[in-house]
Amino acid sequence: MPSWIEQSAHRGLLTSRYPRVPASDAEVPTTARPPLAGPEGRAAGPGPDRCPVGAIEGVAVDQGRCIRCARCLADGFRFAGAVESSSPSRAALARPAASDAGPDPRRAPLAGLGRSLHLFLVDVGSCNACNLELLALANPLYDASRLGLFFTNSPRHADVLVIVGAPTEEMAEPLRRAYEAMPGPKAVVVLGACGISGGAFRGNPGLRAGCDELVPVDLYVPGCPPTPVQVLDGILSLAGRGRGDR
C-alpha cells in the first residue's frame, strides 16, 4: 500500500529556487510582466478608447492601473518589463522608465526584522484572485516559510499588512482598525491594480481610488493579479533583502 511518505518522496523536490535563480516562464506567464512601449516606440500610441482602463498616455503605461488585458499588443506594446516590478512610489509606477531596466531602488522599512516576517491579509474588495495568489506562497512550489515569511491570523502578530482589492466604503473602517492594531515597526503592501488605483472598477460609486487614501502604503505590487513570485519579491524587499543577498 502506498503511503504519504512514499508518495512525497516519489514526487521529489517541487520548490522553486526563486530568489536565487531568476523566475522561469512557468512561474511568470507572459501577461504577468509589465507592459512597455515597443522598440519602435510609437509616439502616436493608442487612443484612450483602446485601453479599457485608461492606463496608457502616449507611450507611457501606468503600471498601477494596467489590468494586463493585452489589448495594446496590437499597437506595438509588449509584455517585456522586468519580472520584479514593485515600487514604493505610486508616481514611479505611473511613469516608469521606458526601458527594460529594473525599477528604482526601494526602501526597506522592516530591515530590522530580517529573516522573519508575519503577513496579515486584508481584502477590501477583491475578486479573490489576489487573495489566492498571496496564499499560494504557502504551497510547496513557493514555500515562503523557507524565506521566513509566515501567515498570521491576527493583526496583533503581523509585521506586514497585505491589502488586496478595490477599497470599498464598507471596508475603510475595518482596514483602518486592522492597521492600528498592528505593532510597529510595520509595513503596508498593496497587491494588484484594484488596490493601487481601483483597477477595472475605478470610478464605481462607493469605491476609493486607491488604498493609499486610507492607510500609508510602503509598497505597491502591480499586476492583475501579481504572480506569487512578484509578491514574494516585493515583500522581501521590505526587509531590505535585495535580489543578490537572500
Partner: peptide, 10 residues
C-alpha cells in the same frame, strides 16, 4: 468577520 484569515475574503 469581516476580516478573518480563516476565510480569505472579507
Amino acid at each position: 468577520g469581516p476580516i478573518s484569515m480563516g476565510v480569505p475574503e472579507s
